[in-house]
Design a protein around this nucleic acid. Structure first.
Lengths: 173, 173
DNA sequence: CACTCGTACTTGAAACTTCAAGCAATGCTT
DNA sequence: AAGCATTGCTTGAAGTTTCAAGTACGAGTG
């Protein structure tokens, strides 16, 4: 904050600072997302002994065709790096919730597969989790606000997607 | 998922699962927050060599009366645990952006103080950061959406606040 | 004053994430 | 078919966060 006047490094001279209203919105966003993520993390850690992200991975696998998915695809859907996924799956594998399998068509490939034990953990954890999500989010918002939230979040997500749509039109970048 | 029928552990028998619309909203939320947080983290790590949260701490200190704040107060405002803050300040101190000072009135207390070097780092990083926030969020939303987002996030944050308002009316809990 | 409880903060270990290499298989190019 | 970039995934180390103690001071009570 305060006035700036350097001319050397920045991409532009003077950015448009956030107005008071914008700052309020931005801080509310930061606080809400932080508190909600912490809240859900603790809830799941307490009830199912796994962090929120790991839970999300199990959900993805549970919904996948034969309860299995290629690592890269899973990473893409979960919006995380392959490295992070590797570590996460390693942990889930150690717990017995997931196992790996070589891919036939591509010898480099790996499939992550949800085990029955994994599905069981998910079934146990899911009710408490949706309840928490409801209490923290949906129950507090009007239907209009819910709709609005969905639209806003879709816009933001699309804007940050590493060129999903149009990825097959690289000349447009 | 699947039908449940245990009577022992859960708080309730059968939760209200999320409808299709609700699921869409929830996933959009998860994706957007994940992508945005990653995006800002990388931007700040690249441009200022610090994670987003640490940047936020410097901002809080910069805005505080004499560029200083009690640890607990800082933790409260930043919505993080005291433990996390301790580690964070230790790192910032090692970098020379922050220093500590004992509190006179309460010998248990510590003040975190933003140094001139810290203020400098902040001044360097701030323009790029607001630009990133604008590009990812504000520039993509209509004024109505911005307003709506602010209202929604305030509601959510208040709902998860560890009893801030009304904390002095404990009998109401 | 002694006791006890709560507050302010720190610490170390374990868990998680990131980053930069790394390896092996694949695909493109000549 | 040989060379070279790319893709798919993993790994180890460094940084961050969480969790469960732990220390030290302050405040309330008898």
């Amino acid at each position: 904050m305060a006035t700036k006047h350097e001319g050397a490094p920045g991409p532009s001279e003077e950015p448009r600072w956030l107005s008071d209203e914008e700052q309020q919105i931005w801080r509310a966003y930061l606080h809400a997302t932080m508190l909600l993520d912490d809240h859900l993390d603790r809830q799941l850690q307490r009830d199912a002994k796994l962090p929120h992200l790991y839970y999300a991975l199990l959900v993805q696998l549970a919904e996948a065709p034969r309860r299995r998915m290629r690592m890269t695809e899973l990473a893409k859907q979960a919006k995380i790096t392959r490295s992070r996924l590797s570590h996460a799956v390693a942990r889930l594998e150690k717990n017995g919730w997931v196992r790996r399998e070589d891919c036939r068509s591509d010898k480099r490939g790996q499939n992550a597969i949800l085990t029955d034990e994994g599905a069981e953990v998910l079934a146990q954890a899911a009710p408490g989790h949706v309840t928490a999500v409801r209490q923290a989010l949906f129950d507090r918002l009007t239907p209009e606000q819910q709709k609005s939230l969905g639209e806003i979040m879709k816009i933001v997500a699309e804007g940050l997607q590493p060129c999903e749509a149009g990825a097959d039109l690289p000349w447009l970048r």
